[in-house]
Write a protein that binds this DNA or RNA. Structure first.
Lengths: 327, 327
DNA sequence: TTGCCTTGATAACTCAAAGACATTAAATTC
DNA sequence: GAATTTAATGTCTTTGAGTTATCAAGGCAA
């Protein structure tokens, strides 16, 4: 059985004042209340802490040690309260941010620099994870924040959709689709698109674009990264879809590749920032989401002009329970 | 306002188990009771400590720190209890022992050696103080134990009378009282005894012996220490009374001094060990008193044989409230 | 000494809050 | 979708911390 912190306060007060009456006044209680508590601690500890002499109460040898320890404990308890009320407001510490592999390489480096400027007290631990694993980690507390693309299993999550990132068709120069004119989604029906390997959401998103256009793509070879995907297009294996943000990094002039944006209804994917709906840091995360959105919109301005209408990134919905927007 | 230790226990239990139900079982309370307390600490601290997710409760960033501190505090509280129950029994530490100057030099050195052997964990801080100051210090907690001689103001003290130490008459060889035959208390009536200076109880005790014999001594010159007192006798200024225990130290052969013990009703002083009646260490002090008594009785056996019957130290009363034996 | 005043202990009573039990709501699992 | 698990909520009980009133003992002043 432990003594209560209040009892420890009483002990220290008596040791400090050398009087029960004065100690009681100090603690804002009546003298009998204090006397009783002191007696109870003494009984609990099996030790006489004070010698009730006049005019001053003396601390026994055993009492000395107990009082010293009580002081320390009280100090630490008060410190705990201090720390708590401070850390309630404070934006500092390490945030674990999970990002899917088809987003991470593009824009993140610049984004982190920007965040470091805005939130100097916060360090970001980035993990590159495929959507499914990322969501598991997020829900189990392995990461605090997830940057990924719709659609995903949003159960129990709150989030923030950032921008709609258009897809761009990448084709070899000598491919039928490799003309420099704008391309319509329907044009890719039947085209044998190169895809990411299973597990990457970019694969599913590309498949969905084709499905929207009426036909599933004839899957053949799968790439493990966007880089290898581009290399495969380059070597003439076929066209593919890339998120616009990847263009700047993955496409260089004179590669024998054509990048064509879509006209009409632009296919794209919605980037979103998600956290557990139960998280205590929702306001903080929302702030960070705003920074991300601004960053991606800014990035859009810097996008290389490709054939056809410039791919516009549209802002989408405000912060909300992700679940609410599910059908 | 501080959280209670129990609340801290609950916090730690939830952090450890990751579940409210399990934590409640751990703390031997119902789950609602624990839930309520957790909510109240969170409210008190203004911080969400836990994220109620399934299947495991997550500790928030702020919570991590709080839990760490709570663990520490609980550890120290348990340590405090340990220390208390240990120090309740234990005989160790420093005892402050006050001794009057006419006792201190005689026997104490050997006594301390003996005590060190019996109570190796205890160190004694000796202070040589005159009766009045000694009692003040004792009552105010300046010393823990007092070794002195009756009579004294025993109010609020408990004690232990050790032995009756006989007085011995010390006279120059050529003095009328300087014969080697036993002397009777009445013989010193009218003799102009040399005395200690004011404040020493030995002075008052000597005066009382004379008063008992019918006449107050003609006070003249006062000595500041027993040593100077003996030197004064030696130089022919007159006879004096010495406590028997001082003989071995103060008298050497061939000093031109005669030591005579009294016959009939032997005058003497009662040595006593005293402590505050309120002291928590009475049993301990009683043990020490027994050692002192044994020591002084042993010392008696080693006393040099002086003229007349050997001065016998008589054991006196058992431990008791000193006040009880006052008239 | 006597009486006053301070101080700590004791007793009876009050009230707040900690806990138990029953129930609800939400989420997970099969 | 049913069953199960788990945290929250509501009601009632009980513990215990606190208050006021009173007592006993010690110190102080007259």
């Amino acid at each position: 059985m432990l003594p209560t912190l209040r009892q420890l306060e009483y002990i220290v007060a008596v040791a400090d004042t050398g009087q029960f009456v004065e100690a009681a006044r100090h603690c804002n209680v009546s003298q009998p209340a204090l006397s009783k508590q002191i007696r109870e601690v003494e009984e609990l500890l099996g030790v006489t802490l004070f010698e009730r002499t006049r005019p001053r109460v003396l601390v026994t040898r055993a009492g000395e040690e107990i009082v010293r320890r009580a002081r320390r404990i009280l100090l630490e308890a008060r410190e705990l309260v201090e720390v708590a009320s401070a850390s309630g407001q404070e934006r500092r510490g390490t945030l674990r941010l999970g990002v899917i592999p088809t987003i991470a390489p593009y824009g993140l480096p610049g984004l982190l620099a920007k965040l470091r400027g805005l939130l100097p007290e916060v360090s970001f631990a980035i993990q590159e994870l495929q959507t499914e694993v990322l969501l598991d980690q997020l829900k189990s507390g392995g990461v605090d924040l997830a940057l990924l693309a719709h659609p995903f299993a949003a159960h129990g999550l709150s989030g923030f959709d950032l921008v709609v990132e258009p897809f761009v068709l990448i084709a070899p120069l000598d491919h039928p689709l490799g003309t420099c004119a704008p391309v319509h989604p329907n044009d890719i029906v039947g085209a044998s698109l190169l895809l990411m390997e299973d597990g990457h959401c970019l694969r599913d998103q590309a498949i969905e674009v084709c499905a929207d256009a009426g036909a599933p793509p004839a899957t053949s070879i799968a790439a493990v990264s966007v880089s290898t995907l581009v290399r495969m297009v380059e070597s003439g294996l076929g066209p593919t879809l890339l998120p616009a943000s990847a263009l700047a990094t993955e496409l260089r002039a004179g590669q024998g590749l054509v990048a064509r944006s879509f006209e009409g209804e632009q296919p794209g994917r919605t980037l979103t920032l998600q956290w557990r709906a139960t998280s205590a840091y929702a306001p903080w995360f929302t702030e960070i989401g705003e920074v991300l959105r601004a960053h991606y919109l800014e990035l859009n301005a810097a996008l290389p002009v490709v054939a056809g209408p410039k791919p516009l990134m549209r802002r989408v919905g405000q912060a909300h329970r992700a679940g609410d927007m599910m059908p």
